[in-house]
C-alpha cells in the first residue's frame, strides 16, 4: 500500500472497502484456528499466552517439551518473545491451549491452594552450574527460604555464592522454579528479576498459607 498513493490508488481502495466488512471478527477466529492447526500439525515451536496475577501480567511460553519461560511484565514481553525467536525458533504463536495446565496451576498457587508445581519443564534456556541451581530450587519447601550460600552448597559448589545470584537473576522460569525463596544470609531479600515488590509479595503469600 505504501508503494503507490496516486489519487487513482486511493480511489480504488475506497471502492474495495466493502471487502473489509466483518474483517476483525473473521481475523480473530482465523487466528485461533491457526493456533489450533499449527499445534495439530506440529508446526508450532513456541506457544505462549499471557495471564494476570497478583505480581502483574505473566508471559508463559512452552515448547513441545514443556514450559520453557515465565516472564514478568518488567522484563518486557515483546523483548522476551523476540529473544525466544532468536534462541529457540521464530515459529511462535499466541496459542493458549498448550499452557492451560500451567495457567491453572499458577492460579491455584496465587490463590493459596497449591504449594508445588507439577509441570514438565523444558530447561533448554539454561545449562551448566546455573542448571544445577535451578534444579535445586523446587527442593526449597513452600514457605521456607534458603540463603545463596546454602543453595551454592546444595548445587555442589560451596564457593559459587555469586554464581547462585546470577543463576537466580537469569532464571527463565520464575515463580515455577522458586528463586524467590533464595535470600541473603543476613535475612534481607536480595534482588529479584520481577522487582523487589514481587519477591516480597510471593514470600508474603507463602508465609500466610
Amino acid at each position: 500500500m505504501t508503494l503507490e498513493s496516486s489519487p487513482d490508488h486511493v480511489d480504488v481502495l475506497s471502492l474495495l472497502e466493502p471487502l473489509d466488512a466483518g474483517l476483525e471478527p473473521a481475523l480473530a477466529s482465523l487466528r485461533a484456528r491457526l493456533a489450533r492447526d499449527a499445534q495439530l500439525t506440529h508446526t508450532l515451536d513456541v506457544a505462549y499466552r499471557v495471564v494476570d496475577s497478583p505480581v502483574g501480567k505473566l508471559l508463559l511460553a512452552a515448547t513441545d517439551r514443556g514450559i520453557v519461560r515465565v516472564a514478568f511484565e518488567v522484563e518486557n514481553h515483546a523483548e522476551v518473545l523476540q529473544r525466544l525467536s532468536q534462541t529457540i525458533s521464530p515459529r511462535i504463536l499466541e496459542a493458549p491451549a498448550r499452557l492451560d495446565d500451567a495457567a491453572r496451576q499458577l492460579e491455584e498457587y496465587f490463590g493459596g491452594t497449591r504449594t508445588e508445581f507439577d509441570l514438565i519443564v523444558d530447561f533448554r534456556l539454561t545449562r551448566g552450574f546455573r542448571l544445577s541451581v535451578l534444579q535445586h530450587l523446587p527442593r526449597i519447601a513452600y514457605g521456607r527460604t534458603e540463603s545463596y550460600a546454602e543453595v551454592a552448597l546444595a548445587a555442589g559448589s560451596p564457593h559459587a555464592v555469586r554464581a547462585v545470584g546470577t543463576a537466580c537473576a537469569t532464571n527463565p522460569l520464575p515463580v515455577i522454579l522458586p528463586c524467590h525463596r533464595v535470600v541473603k544470609s543476613d535475612g534481607s531479600f536480595g534482588g529479584y528479576l520481577g522487582g523487589p515488590e514481587a519477591k516480597l509479595a510471593l514470600l508474603t503469600l507463602e508465609a500466610a498459607a
Binding site: L19, Q82, I92
Partner: peptide, 26 residues
C-alpha cells in the same frame, strides 16, 4: 533476528484476508 511469527500475523493478517476475499469471495 527474525521477529516472532505472531507479529507477522499481526502485521499482515488483514491484508492477506482482503486479498483472499477479493480473489475468492468472502
Amino acid at each position: 533476528s527474525k521477529k516472532p511469527f505472531e507479529l507477522v500475523v499481526d502485521e499482515q493478517g488483514a491484508t492477506v484476508l482482503r486479498v483472499c476475499r477479493a480473489v475468492l469471495g468472502v
